[in-house]
Simulated assay, not measured.
Amino acid sequence: MEEDDLYTKDGTVDYKGNPADKKKTGTWRACPFIIGNECCERLAYYGMSTNLVLYFKHRLNQHSAVAATNNQNWGGTCYITPLIGAFLADSYLGRYWTIACFSIIYIIGMTLLALSASVPGIRPRCSAEDNCNPTETQSAMAFLALYLIALGTGGIKPCVSSYGADQFDDTDEKEKKHKSSFFNWFYLSINIGALIAASVLVWVQDNVSWGWGFGIPAIAMAIAVCFFFSGTRLYRNQKPGGSPLTRMFQLEFFYEQAPDAMRSFCSALPLTTVALGSYLSSLLVTIVSNVTAKNGKPGWIPDNLNYGHIDYFFWLLAALSVLNLGVYIWVVRWYTYKRAVGTLR
């Protein structure tokens, strides 16, 4: 009995493929490396993406509507690629190797983006601060870097939170209680990374240079990978369990009720709705820009927003939000509810 208690009972193994030793792997021994990885990765992602529309406009010489459309399409791709990463993690590679392999792609994309914004000959030539004339090759290099980043993040988004959950044995009540604490720290790390990115790095891009503005996120991503690999000996790993596509039709499909081998795929599915929303947003911007700019009118979203009617576009978005609320109220009758535990009397 004592020997049985030495190892996890949820099927996890250590980095050598042996049953995971409870005293040497997982729990809060391993989680700081995952949390540190996530904080730096989110800092890198938001530091690079928050100001991306301005980069499209001021460095790649794109009109406002085109820049917004390209930004939404790229963002949608960042949220659709997790389906690829989740499928590979659950079916073939496992979460550890999926995160590791896609992180390398991520770093390559971040490095290429930083180079495309800083190296002479690769970066767009500018005659003034906001007057740049990039060649097709220079623009193509920037977008190649961005879509490598979109592919790289697709292997991290659906796996890293699930990988943190793997570090706690659900059959052990003591470890199970610590899992919720891990997620609190995990989401705090996301917000810390996003806060630094949206303040410090945006200021660097606006006031120092785009080379440093993209270079610092590339360095942050390299640090994130170092954090992740540093904890290799401490991680618990779930073995790949075959294609989740077959099993998803055999189970009640909720994350809490899905087996451990399907956690990544369950995490990726909600992200697809964000991806579809981003693609629809880019389509909406394109339609509004083209329809309202006919007959020589500047339209709602011209290159110089001072001559357009961006306020009309915001009213349109407000109307869509009201419509969304109406749909939510209409379908709420079909929701099921759970009684709150420990409510005040």
Rank of each mutant, 00 (worst) to 15 (best):
A68D: 09
M262T: 06
Y96S: 13
R125W: 09
F229M: 06
S209V: 11
A20H: 06
L52P: 04
R59I: 00
N304W: 02
F229K: 01
V200M: 10
H58N: 07
A30H: 00
L276S: 08
L325W: 12
A194N: 15
Y163H: 03
M221A: 03
L148M: 05
N37V: 05
G152K: 01
I80C: 14
Q72F: 06
G242K: 03
M262I: 09
Q250K: 11
L271W: 09
A293S: 15
W74P: 00
P124F: 08
L317H: 12
S267M: 09
G211F: 14
W185V: 12
G26Y: 03
Y187D: 09
R345W: 13
P270H: 06
A150N: 02
S49P: 00
D21C: 07
S264G: 08
R345A: 15
W334V: 00
G193F: 15
N237L: 10
L316H: 11
L344R: 06
K179C: 00
C159N: 09
T137S: 06
L6H: 04
W334T: 07
Q167K: 12
A319F: 15
I156D: 01
T153C: 11
L144G: 07
S180F: 04
Y45G: 13
N237D: 02
Y187I: 11
G36A: 07
